[in-house]
Design a protein around this nucleic acid. Sequence first.
DNA 1: GCCGTTTTCGGCCCGACTGTTTTCAGTCG
Length: 639
Amino acid sequence: MSARRRVFPSSRPCTAATGCCTTDRASALAAARNDVSNDVNKALQRAFEELADGLDLLGESSFRSASHRRVARAIGDLTAPIDQLGDDPAQLRARLEAIPGIGEGATRRILEFVEHGEIADHVEILERVPGGLFQLLQVPGLGPKAVRTLWQELGVQGVDDLRRELDSGRVESLPRMGRKTVQNLRSALEFLTRTRDRLPVALAMPLALDLRDGLRSVEPEARVEIAGSLRRGVETIGDLDLVAAHHDPAARRRLAEAFVNDGRVTDVLASGERKCSVRLSAGGHAIQADLRLGEPAAFGAALHYFTGSKEHNVLMRQIAIGFGRRLNEYGLFEGDEPRPQDHGGTPLAGAEEAELYDALGLPFIPAELREEAFDPARVGLEALRDLLARLIDEDQIVADLHTHSTASDGRHSLEELVAIARRRGLAVLAVTDHSRSSVLAGGLEIDALREHVAAIRELAAGLDDLVLLAGAEVDILPDGSLDYPDEVLAELDVVVASPHVSLSQDRATATRRLLAAIRNPHVHILGHPTGRIVGRRRGLQPDIDALCAAASEHGTALELNANPRRLDLDDAALRRAVEVGCLVAIDTDAHSDAQFGYLSYGVRTARRAGLPADSCVNTWEPERLRDWLADKSVGARGR
DNA sequence: GCCGTTTTCGGCCCGACTGTTTTCAGTCG
Ligand SMILES: Nc1nc2c(ncn2[C@H]2C[C@H](O)[C@@H](COP(=O)(O)OP(=O)(O)OP(=O)(O)O)O2)c(=O)[nH]1
Ligand SMILES: [Mg+2]
Ligand SMILES: [Mg+2]
Ligand SMILES: [Zn+2]
């Protein structure tokens, strides 16, 4: 995945690079330990990225910079502040070195950062390389070689300098730079002013589905699929990736034509026989889209390549090499000859993805798990097979335990909800309207709640094909107390407890607040635990391990709110939950019929965490679910 | 810089497209 960052307006957080924050970094670090923003990891990740970029700009070994970049990624994947990985320096050192990609050097640098708030090598890079060059590397089309030339030859130190030099005409005189390069750089700079960071999946997916369906209607015989981070179920999307296959080259050309001539296209970046790249502007968002074209006989290989992740691709290709074979987007081939597809080589596999895994002696790894964290060599082949056998699937989900009706802010009446649940094949539906503190969402006072519950129960009594449960989504107030007293909660079939306000609390306060809800014997599900909105609001940053431990102890389920704007808990936090083995509830939080369709986003996120179906209460038979709802301690670990 | 049931040294994935190039470097996926 590209690590595209926002370039305009300049919003880089305070780091050594920006030089805007000269206060004692060690004390800033101490504050960050209890900071909601988990800035220790962010700052370290940035330091390693700049180390990598700096080496590239200085023309050093690209393998070394790639290593630094891998360390940066590993730090970004952590779910807790890095200095809290161990209780003492020795343990911290051991835990760090155990992380793949983090070796002796990175461990030394991380410990140096934790102790002194900076890394000498990083500081040295910052002294040698102007800080604005890191931003320049984010400009599409500008790599380390070009940035270095601009810097050395024209003294360009940042984006503003580049803009000026483009107008001055001097860029054209540089080696390997001409008129078109200048024009392309102008477009790229303009694109960056219109683009935000990575696009939340909730915005990207509808756009990608529309592109996919458009291509399908151009060539109904073609196989067209969404690939890339969208297919892997990532919560934010760098660009839209599509794969299309058709046996007829003329049909492939027509697909490419349609793609680059779409009304939303602002720039055509590349338009070849096998791939096209465009920039789109749609719904106020600017984003790149890539289309990969090929033969149906190689569709599996192409889809696999374009689905990624990059790390997974490299891994598979390395495994192929180990077998004396070669894997690329055209298939798996015998031997180590480059471009075997051009030399009449017949692929051993390639029409379907599954063939590739078969031929390499691997179990089929679904797209959501094609990430570094699930590297078979890391997880172990046996453990991986076990994980895959237990992995949750959307069709195993038979219950939705968090939905809203017109009693609060939902769009549908109870009767309508029942009809929707039946049509969608649910066995269990819980109606969980808001509690009294959520005034804007039409939260119910206690009397209104009791009437509502009575209405639900009356309706439920007449149903034989659907278990209709009376519940509530009760606010977790800032101090951890709940918005209804215990005796009211005890009257409900299902209690989802969720934070809705005070979502900027510090880590310790947030953790205490959520722990209180988890420990309440009436609370079944901790709803959207952090309250984050993807790409918009960070929400609470609690100690996830502490939540998981408590949830596990009390039999409380942690929610994976399937609304793609939320996806809360996120994949990284859920991986912790899966490790601990606590219960998880995947609920849509639907306020309308269409929002029941959010389930697929939730399941993809759950699969990214390797969630076993059995840990997900929504897969349980109604009888088992009822037992747990009656006394959640039956779900406690060790019982 | 990192890593190892083919290695503790010597590798590190593989290919498309563009622009500027007389034969390919750079960037990107
Ligand atoms: N073998 C190989 N495949 C790559 C490489 N870079 C990208 N790919 C493949 C895997 C990616 O998932 C796929 C699409 O590339 P993208 O840059 O769009 O990445 P992705 O969609 O994973 O993340 P994104 O959200 O777009 O940042 O192309 C690479 O360097 N080598
Ligand atoms: Mg992508
Ligand atoms: Mg892409
Ligand atoms: Zn809510």
